[in-house]
Amino acid sequence: MPDFTWETQSPLRKALVVGRHGAGTGAAGVTLREVRDIALVQVMARRGQAAATAKAAKKLFGVEPPTSPKAVTAKTATLIWSGADQFLAFAPHSGDEFYAKLADTFAGIASLSDQSDGRCALHISGPRARDAMAKFCALDLHDTVFPVGAAASTAIDHTNASVWRSADEAGEAVYNLLVFTSFSDSLWHMIADAALEYGLDAGHVSAVQ
């Protein structure tokens, strides 16, 4: 019997060319990272169970899930609002463990949908990140409108995406994107194109530390 091994592959394994691209030679204006090894579960409160779902989430994560377009960071996960009565729980990949824990917590009060492989996570930062984002994202990302912790379900190139802003790094805003896996090759090209004039530093990181 042959050996069966189960390596993972990134949907960006062709599109993502690690390194410095585009204009200039110094520090890139935009840093773009694929975040690999993620776990992602969509949690949808059942009819009339919003409060129970929030309570259960608080118990599991130590924080209430957002009820408006925001992202809340907890110790073990980030909870991102994704629509009425629902949020995404975003965490490092841990086999089935994360999903199983959620399934246990939300049994009977919320429906879950495993999206760990359904989305590709991206991380955009750098001094020109917002200029590049303005080319493909219709959101107003101004500090006063989209501060740290803001989130949105929006459309990028006519497809759904979740966007949230995490803590600033080196005084620069950091934007996180979740896009559909099957679109990610195409969207990566588009985002990279938007960033090239500012200089692009492309790479990937693992969510698992």
């Binding site: 949808m44 629902q86 999206q115 359904g118 896996t181």
Partner: peptide
């Protein structure tokens, strides 16, 4: 009035 939740799982599965 129905208790139903929908989500797309198209991209989740190979």
């Amino acid at each position: 009035e129905l208790d139903v939740q929908l989500s797309s799982a198209t991209d989740q599965w190979a």
